[in-house]
Every structure is written in structure tokens, then in C-alpha cells.
Design a binder for these strands. Structure first.
Lengths: 145, 145
DNA sequence: AATCGATGGTTACTTTTGCAACTAATTTCG
DNA sequence: CGAAATTAGTTGCAAAAGTAACCATCGATT
């Protein structure tokens, strides 16, 4: 006798699906006003959070491949939302930082981002905290911290 | 004063990340023996679960764009894992079904898929059931059922 | 200081994806 | 019945992503 697999109840599938649905939905928030891709948003968010940093560090923090970071950085640079400068200690590295315009955009997006998250958590009601705890556990298991 | 956003704690980001990490890790399971892409696996899984069905229905069930389904179907067909036949009621539709080879592959993959899921749930320990409940709630909210 | 391996970052090339336009068959409705 | 609107599925094209090769610099070792 063969064991059945119902795709719609299969955990890896469900995680992948909910992940893309939610992050696409969220993308519409910042895509409405500014036309940002997801990688661009992540670079913006990382720089907004930490200030100056190199592309490598951005990739490490936002879990993106270095080419993805490289392209997102260039796009943001062309938009004049960030500027590069050569690092003094290590001339391979480029230190990146948001320009005033970039910072303004960031500060405009953050409240709606948090509002979206809040709404999402609210809609989960009783399950909200459980989800956060489970995500902690999952990230710990997958060593994603 | 400005509200801070820490990307690593931001729910949409975390969901997207864990989704791709887990589903990529799972992909290695069936990628090891058979070299399947994720869309191909989903088509295989859907047909294995339901038997005969049209491409449209597969897309609806596995949440994939019709072009993605179309290409995955062709790839599986070239591998001789599925065959098409014209529907008698509606000659636009193509009824798809796994061949014996396709079914064998499916039946080989299912146990390791379930084992992987089991391992994942075990590693979550106390949080496992909470995660499943939270996913139910999330899917209900996003009307993904 | 000269060489060798590692590191930050970009770019060329290929694969994957999504959108829009298309074909062919079907339904709807005047 | 016959024209118009829908639907199943494919394909061409452009945007997005990953891989590997590459350049420049750095650090260590000799």
C-alpha cells in the first residue's frame, strides 16, 4: 500500500507558497508609490537599518546573492538613493550609504511596512505569537540567524 | 522620532526567506536522484495525487502560472513521465496522466518527501502543531484554500 | 618584496520566469 | 444560426536570477 501525499498539506510547499504570497502582497505596498523590486527594497531596508556598510555585509544580512545585491545597488544608485565611496581601510570594498532622498523614501516606507505587518499579525489573532515562536524555532534549526 | 524596522524580524521577509530555504532544501531530496525542477515536482505531485487532469486544474491546485505548468508538462512529457490525450468533451483541453515510469518515480519520491516533512516537524518539537495551525489561519486569511 | 591564496565586487552567459499576444475550440446571446 | 466573448494551452519576447569567470586588492608566507 502506497502512502499518499496531498500537496496542499505538504509543509515545504505551504511554506514556499505563503512566503511568496505574503512578500508579493507586501511588495505592492512599496511598489505602489516607488517602483522597487524586492532586492532593491532589501538593500534599502538594510542600509536604513545600519547606515553605512559594504555590499558583502548587505548580502549577508538580507540573505541575497552578491550579484543580486550588486544589481540592486546599481539601480538604487541610478535613482540617486544611495552613494558609494571607496573604503579607506580596504580599497576593494565600497562603502554604501543612503542619500537624503534615499533616507526620505525609506522613512516613508517603514510606517506602511510596519502597518502591513501589524495587520497581518492581527488577522492571525490567537495564532500570531505562535507563528513568531515557530519561525524562531525554524530559523534556529536551519541556522538562519 | 522615527520607528525602526529590523529586517531580520520583519514578518514578510522572514516568511519569504524560510519558504525558499525549506523548499530549496527539499528540492535537493528529489534533485539528488531525479533532476527535477520545483514546477516539475509540483506537476508530478498533483498528477500523482489526482490521476488524470487538465493543465489548468494543475495550475489551480499547485498555484502556478499557466506558462510554468505548460513548460513543466512538456519537460515531463519529454522524459516520458506523463502523456497527454485529447479530451473527448472539450477538444481545447488536454487530459494529462502519469505514465508507469512517472508513477514509479512519484512513488519513489513520496516516502522521502514525507520523511523530510516528518524530520522538519520533529525538529520543531513543541512548535510543530502551532506552526501548522498558524499556517491554516494564514491561508484562510489570504484565501489560499 | 615577490608570490600565492583569499576576498569584494562586477560582468558575460545561460536559465528561469512573467507578460502579452496568439491559436483553436467553446459558450453565449442577439 | 452566427458574431462576439471566453477559455485551454502555447509561444515570443523581455525582465530577473544564478553560475562562473574575471579584475583589483589585500593578507600571509617565504
Amino acid at each position: 500500500m502506497m502512502t499518499k501525499l496531498a500537496l496542499e498539506h505538504f509543509l515545504p510547499y505551504r511554506l514556499a507558497r505563503i512566503g511568496t504570497v505574503v512578500s508579493q502582497e507586501f511588495r505592492e505596498i512599496y511598489g505602489r508609490d516607488y517602483d522597487l523590486t524586492i532586492p532593491e527594497w532589501r538593500v534599502l531596508a538594510t542600509l536604513g537599518q545600519f547606515g553605512e556598510m559594504g555590499a558583502k555585509a548587505i548580502g549577508r544580512h538580507s540573505f541575497m546573492h552578491k550579484t543580486k545585491v550588486s544589481r540592486a545597488v546599481r539601480a538604487l544608485e541610478e535613482r540617486r538613493w544611495l552613494k558609494r565611496r571607496e573604503s579607506l581601510e580596504d580599497r576593494r570594498e565600497e562603502v554604501l550609504a543612503l542619500t537624503p532622498q534615499g533616507l526620505t523614501a525609506y522613512e516613508n516606507i517603514v510606517p506602511s511596512a510596519l502597518a502591513y505587518e501589524e495587520k497581518l499579525l492581527c488577522s492571525l489573532g490567537i495564532h500570531a505569537q505562535a507563528l513568531l515562536d515557530a519561525l524562531d524555532a525554524l530559523e534556529r534549526v536551519k541556522k538562519m540567524n
